[in-house]
Design a protein around this nucleic acid. Structure first.
Lengths: 228, 228
DNA sequence: GACCAATATTAGGCCATCCTAAATCGGGTG
DNA sequence: CACCCGATTTAGGATGGCCTAATATTGGTC
């Protein structure tokens, strides 16, 4: 079976499934049908059917009623899409005036249309970056990816100062709000207070005091303290 | 019927059909099923079926067994695609190091994926150009388009000096060859000899003597003499 | 150890798009 | 002016991807 050939001709849908499954289990732990359905906003039966086809094609390992994992080939294809997505985002922000929060939707469409050549040209124009504007690591063309281990801001003890590394990009609304607070990767943040029972955090960043709800605290990922 | 809504949600296929029909009859003369089929590399029945659906949607005017024309709305959608295509080509050449002859295929895919926002950002980055790298006019967002009237180099009488304006982009091989001769829009060319019966032309351009077959002579479009 | 709720799969349809094979139309020729 | 050939359309079928409704499995609870 020629892996390269299979990977060349994936449909948009298939690319989205693989990316979703990768996202749900970067580590390889099985992803469930309903998780995938939820992420892609599809019905569970649709996912069931597609999963079957993809495992027949050798892109997934499927144990019925248990879950799916990417095969080496599926993972390769998924990482290729992630690389595309993150490089496109970086390019649009750096060269075409896109903002942090609007770039995701555009990249989501473009990632299925660009050629490998174009992706590499964009990478070169950007100086082969390792992280995208949200702080997510960009997989290399060989599939290697820097997996920073980060901890949510909400888990940082009071009094600690940490560097913000990475911000979940999936919800533009939230992203826009985060941007409006001036919190972007690289920002240095000191936790000054933390209310119990899921209450808000109080932090200081570039001299400003910010109140941050628990949900937000969980998607703001920081360097482990010893990495600053 | 809300025209804007219909136009928003066109499929890739539909966009390709509209562009093809526009290309076959920019002036509005009807295009035949087989011409469309040939251009899109599809079977005639496929085209027949799609034409039917599109005329029901109000994008085409179809007289069975006679031909199709774009409606105002169809034309608008087609011009939108042409604008996208030509701006994308221009952008890729100017900013991402694409060559004249490789850019077409990339644009052909991207034109279906970019947002209006992105197109306008690229246009702005380029300084709102009126012509693409092949010399083809770029429709404005309002649908107006500069229609240069050009004549094929093969029709220029011996002894005349003309400016090259526009080069047919449809065949990369041919385009590559043309580029290798140094013949690009703006080049100034003097016809020094013309053989009868479809024989070759001899021309001089930037001090070099070039022999040009009739097929090539027909796709190299020049300014009318009085426009130099 | 039987049952229930949550989760997953199968069954059966729909739509867009493509195809090949078979009918049909229409314009030029004898 | 009847006929025929090429162009076109209709018929019938495949595929990919989605859906809802019905069925099956699993794992925990009494």
């Amino acid at each position: 079976m020629n892996a390269a050939l299979v990977t060349e001709s994936l449909t948009r849908s298939v690319e989205d499934y693989l990316k979703a499954i990768y996202r749900l289990s970067p580590s390889g732990r099985p992803a469930s049908t309903s998780e995938i359905a939820h992420l892609l906003e599809l019905s569970a039966p649709s996912v069931s059917g597609m999963v079957k086809r993809l495992s027949e094609q050798g892109l997934l390992e499927h144990v019925p009623y248990k879950g799916v994992q990417l095969t080496a080939e599926g993972r390769r294809a998924a990482l290729r899409m992630v690389r595309r997505h993150r490089l496109i985002e970086s390019y649009l922000v750096d060269f075409l005036g896109y903002s942090w929060d609007t770039v995701h939707a555009e990249a989501e469409r473009l990632e299925h249309a660009v050629s490998d050549t174009l992706v590499e040209r964009m990478a070169a124009a950007l100086g082969h970056p390792s992280f995208d504007p949200h702080g997510d690591p960009i997989p290399a063309s060989d599939g290697s990816i820097a997996e920073l281990d980060c901890i949510p801001l909400s888990d940082i003890p009071v009094g600690r100062t940490v560097e913000l590394r990475r911000v979940d990009e999936s919800e533009p609304e939230r992203l826009r709000y985060i941007a409006s607070l001036g919190l972007r990767p690289g920002a240095v943040v000191t936790v000054t207070d933390r209310q119990p029972f899921g209450g808000p955090l109080t932090v200081e960043s570039s001299g400003e005091r910010l109140i941050i709800g628990r949900e937000l605290g969980q998607v703001l990922l920081c360097a482990r303290e010893n990495e600053r």
